[in-house]
Simulated scan of single mutants.
Amino acid sequence: MPEEQQLTGVVQKNIDALLEASERYEKHKTTTDRVADAITKWSGSMAFVYLHVVFFAVWIAANVTWFGLTQFDPFPFGMLTTIVSLEAIFLSTFVLVSQNRQAALSDRRADLDLHIDLLSEREITRILQVVDAMAKHLKVDLPPQEDLEELESDVSTEQILGELDRKHGQPAA
């Protein structure tokens, strides 16, 4: 088995920065956010499902007089239906609160990705320009590349977004 490689300083620094940003984000969550996350996490677990199966089975068994118990919610189980409906309303609200917050975090990450992509595009364009200038200065014969001039030109984010909007049939933002 090969020896485990150590991460480079830059990679480790990036990991640390991401973890620190995550921790800052977690620290700034409101109590409501924490409650919504906890409830969403619990309601998305198999333990939650099992608990409900047992609860429903006991409720129904108790109300169809299988065990000689006095009915407190006769068929069609109106009280159970009301309880389950209220639970569904609250659970869906908590899930939506969590999803909205996660969507905002996802948008923030997408903005960061786009920013890094744009920086990378600009850097690569500059590198191509420098390498092309060096090749010309050193009189290095390169095979003709039809797209080299295009690759060396700056990319206009506004033009790309406008073209994407046009192709999707949307008004320009």
Rank of each mutant, 00 (worst) to 15 (best):
L7K: 09
T8H: 06
G9Q: 11
N14F: 12
N14S: 15
I15Y: 08
D16Q: 13
A17N: 08
L18E: 11
E20H: 13
E20N: 03
A21P: 02
A21S: 14
S22M: 14
R24D: 09
R24P: 00
K27A: 11
D33L: 10
R34S: 02
D37S: 05
A38C: 06
K41G: 00
W42S: 13
W42E: 13
S43V: 02
S45N: 10
M46H: 03
H52E: 04
H52M: 11
V53K: 01
F55Q: 04
I60W: 04
A62Y: 13
N63K: 09
N63C: 11
V64P: 05
V64H: 05
F67L: 15
L69W: 14
L69T: 15
Q71D: 14
P74A: 04
L80H: 09
T82C: 06
T82K: 08
T82M: 13
I83A: 10
V84K: 03
V84R: 00
E87I: 05
E87N: 10
A88N: 05
I89F: 13
S92G: 01
T93W: 11
F94M: 15
F94Y: 15
F94S: 09
S98H: 10
Q99H: 04
A104H: 01
L105Q: 11
L105V: 10
S106Y: 13
D107A: 07
D113P: 00
H115K: 10
I116K: 07
I116S: 08
E123K: 01
T125G: 00
T125N: 09
I127C: 02
L128Y: 11
